[in-house]
Design a protein around this nucleic acid. Structure first.
Lengths: 248, 248
DNA sequence: AGAAGGACCAGTGGTCCGTA
DNA sequence: AGAAGGACCAGTGGTCCGTA
């Protein structure tokens, strides 16, 4: 239950490669730790319609004869009930929420360092915090994952009973994580409706939630729901595809 | 005294070129307006040690046969007493401070638009605000200028008497704007000292100042002054040159 | 020499899509 | 098919330095 978090902070910058050896992967919701290092290499991806020439650079056999190691991916999440430990190569939702608490601790450390140095002090979980997470060995924390599930954590913060009920219901029905994640939007929009639709204010009023950016899609859903129940695209499909872009 | 500010807001994006015709330059501190359009073109600058090949692209004789116009630069600031109107091709410090108030109004407009659209709402004067300023014709507002004098405006907000006294003193001694600007740091650091050194908190506590980012140099001076009066580099020289960079 | 501001650049927020 | 996350990209904060 008590997660390991490398404490203290080192002083100099650190490349991603330097991290590759000390891999730590969280397991279920329990206290187990697996340390895994696996081989293999990745290729660059190519962006759609990017047409640009990609030069394949081979980093193999460089100075460090040791060769590269590939970081093991975290086990996928499954829908678990509150308190339930995921079995097999899966992680449960208590563990997911725990990662958000860990990010908060990391942010606090980053803030303290910044204050000490007289530098500007982040109030949100920024890239700097994710970089710091890597640096102190919490390499299982990454931006795309944390941003992906922010609204799920928001529901957990703002209405734990509803969050728990949703988990039980989706587990019972054998739904996958993606379906559960989608379903988290609706009760949040309902909360926003009760509180005057200001989702930013709702996030900022909650001490653990205030450090997270409001996810774009949640913001859009609140906006759409407020402006007439007309043509509200059920929480399933992508709102962003329908967004008119009008800027200055 | 009552400055013109284009009201209402247009809907689509606007390139910089489209702005070039409706140039409005503020004059002194009075109510005069000069509308100036002058000819000429600029070249790209080349960055120091950049060695990269620069392709000169000629945009002349494009669709709009009218040809390009060059924006007239704003008149330089001179040190004026409170209430004093700058004469000749100069702008006074009341006008400088007025620009900060105008930025605040522009930010409020940008915020209202964002709220209407359900988009994220800036709390500070961001690039978006400067872009909006250009769009509504306030092309005499630009980021480098506003950032350059933020701490001078901060002093004006936080201690108007000291700010006024400093202006009178520097005018009397015939000092130029740069010297006055430098001198604004010291009383600000003194204010910070009295209030526990938290310059961010000081900015945020003031309604008109809270929308401005704390300037790097002011932050550094506060930090240096707090950490022992030892080796504090008189406000004159660059602090940034002495800054150790230690990041993650 | 003193000053205004176009334009650059490192690092951000946001998330796509090649990967497993 | 479902999911994790490396890596990309448009637009940011910050300010240098070519310009007048």
């Amino acid at each position: 239950r008590c997660r390991h978090l490398v404490s203290g902070y080192a002083i100099d910058s650190l490349s991603q490669e330097e991290e590759q050896e000390k891999e730590v992967a969280g397991s279920g919701g329990g206290g187990t730790w697996e340390v895994v290092v696996v081989g293999g290499r990745k290729k660059q991806r190519r962006r759609k319609g990017q047409k640009k020439v990609v030069v394949e650079v081979d980093h193999g056999d460089e100075l460090d004869g040791d060769g590269g190691h590939e970081r093991q991916r975290e086990h996928p999440f499954i829908v678990t009930e509150p308190g339930e430990v995921a079995r097999g190569k899966k992680n449960g939702l208590d563990y997911l929420f725990h990662l958000y608490e860990q990010c908060r601790e990391l942010l606090i450390q980053v803030q303290n360092i910044a204050k000490d140095r007289g530098e500007k002090c982040p109030t949100k979980v920024t890239n700097q915090v994710f970089r710091y997470a890597k640096k102190v060995g919490a390499s299982y924390i990454n931006k795309p994952k944390m941003r992906h599930y922010v609204h799920c954590y928001a529901l957990q913060c703002l209405d734990e009973d509803t969050s728990n009920a949703l988990r039980r219901s989706f587990k019972e029905r054998g739904e996958n994580v993606g379906a559960w994640r989608q379903a988290c939007y609706k009760p949040l929009v309902a909360i926003a409706a009760r509180q005057g639709w200001d989702i930013d204010a709702i996030f900022n009023a909650h001490p653990r939630l205030a450090i997270w950016y409001v996810p774009t899609k949640l913001r859009q859903l609140c906006h759409a729901e407020r402006n007439g129940a007309t043509a509200v695209p059920a929480v399933s499909s992508s709102v962003s595809a329908r967004t008119d872009h009008v800027t200055f």
